[in-house]
Write a protein that binds this DNA or RNA. Structure first.
Lengths: 364, 364
DNA sequence: GCGTGTTCGGCAAGCACTTTCCAGGACGGG
DNA sequence: CCCGTCCTGGAAAGTGCTTGCCGAACACGC
């Protein structure tokens, strides 16, 4: 071990004296110490460092020098309390490991990093109670902004609670934005799930497919519902019987996709094309199909939704509906942080484009 | 739009009166209001809510009721200031989109969520200056703990600065832990990069390979160096000439892997086996090789390092060296948060196991 | 019945900052 | 030359919460 202050009984006194007098005392350096060293009042020191009022040159220089020498870092919490405004932004996702959410997170962070704010990240693991709890946490930290992605439930009670919690959040001075279908009385980035799935269905029909199976998420998940609905609409557009599709519901995860695909095969796969309502489920399905000896796209075509980055490494390349996830995150951050606090909630629709790749092929 | 407080001029007075009197005033609910409503002093209200001293029953109940009615949420920042200790934990990674880091983040968050702490996430995008800056930010927020993953440089100057910054962080009362080879005077979770790569090389030799190419990261990246070194050692162990391997340096990313693999092919691929020093590079290489018409593993074997989750969906399944990323994150969090503040820096070594899969095959 | 604890409200002094307000000096115009 | 204005430093009053200390009230043992 190179450095081990825990076992060194005491530092040699003058050892780091010429070293600009780094932190030698216990605890953080306080503004009052900076002020004392510069021979000015606390107020002046504060003003120099926050730059919120001009300070005469002799003082200004001395304060800056003192702060540098002492390696002063302001206490952000105290600043937030005194100013009545913090610089933290909350970000609520379901799971960091899910590429859908990490892409969104990346977009949010990109936006936030440019503004010298800081991100509180919390993952709900799809638990509505945790979601509520975390909104409260963010309020408690007086977050300036809050981005919630994919509160994806149709549960009436939970939605009400969440709206109420968000009102509380707003009352505490924060601005929220949601990435989801159900705008909760706040700004919202709403992906065109239904329209995208509809377009996808049409494309698949044009490839000659007539027998479809859909691997969907839990019934109460709004995004899943919308995608199924849109898909059916697209089938109808092309004169395909929308009621003829098998829809299986499972978890909105890779494991969910795996399991549903297995069930599908076990039940005797009749469809020529499988639509998994999101990409992680599609990946699970792909893996299960492979395991079952069903070839994609030779035996069955497969399509997903979202266009997560992982798809780039998959063989066959998956047909999907592209959502600009990072942009969505950045946009949500923008809505929450840059919009006029008094402005009414805005909804930004996000176009979802079909990307045909190798996993779907024309039926001859 | 269902709810639009921005355009409603004023709420009807008694409208949500029976509603437990939600937040109707401007700004957050203060403790003083709770105390007033309960008819007790500020001190008593504080004590009831923080539970740090017993309070007699008549008061206790009234305070709790008042807090509930008013939907009181304590101001975490003010609490932190008053208590002199915050409940935030900083997490520094390079990039959320990289599965290596998101896995670690997941582990950290799992650990942190159980303790009712909150995570500040910052991504450095591999920029040393940002890294320093964010450590300062965390110090400024008086984070109780800080986890830095993969400060992966051998740059002397930067290391010194970082150590100093971390000392400042510690002086401000925080505890840090690092996931990396260079423990910076703090607790460290150190993956066995060298030993893992060495074992890998041995396995590959045993498969009959003799001609190797290594796709490495930038020369100053410690993890990359160690893995190359270990790999060479493994070759030597098996009587293979360690100097005979081609080592190409590029970026530590997917794009880096793609580019290096292309170069390799362009230069006339002579190796029978390619080792990419991490999995994302291996994925890039796989993609480039495919594009160039080089089959894996038929024309060349390919191995990576880390065992990121994305590998599960790749064909052929990649041989790699497994690192328990989530556990590493959790462990780092534990070191930073649960260890005795006075204890000397501990280093926890993490075993790295070879996982042979389809991308490497025996040379007959 | 009295000393000795123990329990528990409330006052007020923090915590580390910001910002308002005041006052003194400089400056300029009439 | 005087008054109004501008500039700027400092004292002090905030910001929302915690907590040390005091003392009242009550219980207990003898």
């Amino acid at each position: 071990m190179t450095i081990d202050p825990g076992t060194i009984p005491s530092r040699k006194p003058g050892e780091d004296a010429e070293d600009g007098e780094g932190a030698r005392r216990d605890g953080p350096v306080l503004l009052s110490e900076v002020a004392a060293r510069a021979g000015v009042s606390l107020a002046t020191a504060s003003r120099v460092l926050s730059g919120r009022r001009s300070v005469g040159e002799p003082y200004r220089g001395r304060v800056l020098a003192a702060a540098r020498d002492l390696r002063y870092t302001p206490n952000a919490q105290a600043q937030a309390v005194a100013r009545g405004a913090s610089n933290v932004v909350g970000l609520l996702i379901h799971d960091v490991l899910d590429p859908y959410f990490s892409s969104i997170a990346s977009g949010v962070m990109r936006h936030v990093e440019e503004r010298d704010l800081v991100v509180f990240l919390a993952s709900t693991h799809s638990d509505p109670d945790r979601e509520l709890e975390y909104v409260a946490t963010m309020r408690s930290h007086r977050a300036r902004g809050l981005i919630i992605c994919g509160s994806r439930t149709t549960d009436r009670l939970h939605t009400e609670r969440l709206v109420k919690e968000l009102e509380g959040f707003r009352a505490a001075g924060g601005r929220a934005a949601v990435i989801s279908q159900n705008r909760l009385g706040t700004h919202a980035v709403v992906p065109q799930n239904r329209a995208g799935a509809r377009r996808l269905a049409r494309e698949l029909c044009r490839l000659g497919h007539r027998q479809f199976a859909v691997l969907a998420g839990p019934v109460h998940v709004l995004a899943s519902r919308d995608r199924v609905t849109g898909f059916r609409e697209g089938l109808a557009d092309e004169g395909c019987d929308p009621e003829g599709v098998t829809v299986l519901h499972g978890r909105f995860t890779r494991e969910g996709g795996e399991q549903l695909a297995s069930e599908l095969v076990a039940a005797g796969l009749r469809a020529t094309c499988v639509f998994a309502v999101n990409d992680v489920m599609a990946l699970g399905a792909l893996s299960a199909l492979r395991r079952e000896g069903v070839r994609v796209p030779d035996d069955v075509s497969l399509a997903g939704f979202d266009d997560i980055t992982t798809l780039r490494d998959v063989v066959p390349a998956l047909t999907t509906v592209r959502l600009p996830l990072e942009e969505m995150g950045a946009r949500a951050a923008q809505l929450a942080l840059d919009s006029d606090p008094a402005s009414p909630p805005r909804a930004v629709k996000v176009h979802a484009d079909v990307v045909l790749r190798e996993s779907t092929r024309p039926l001859v």
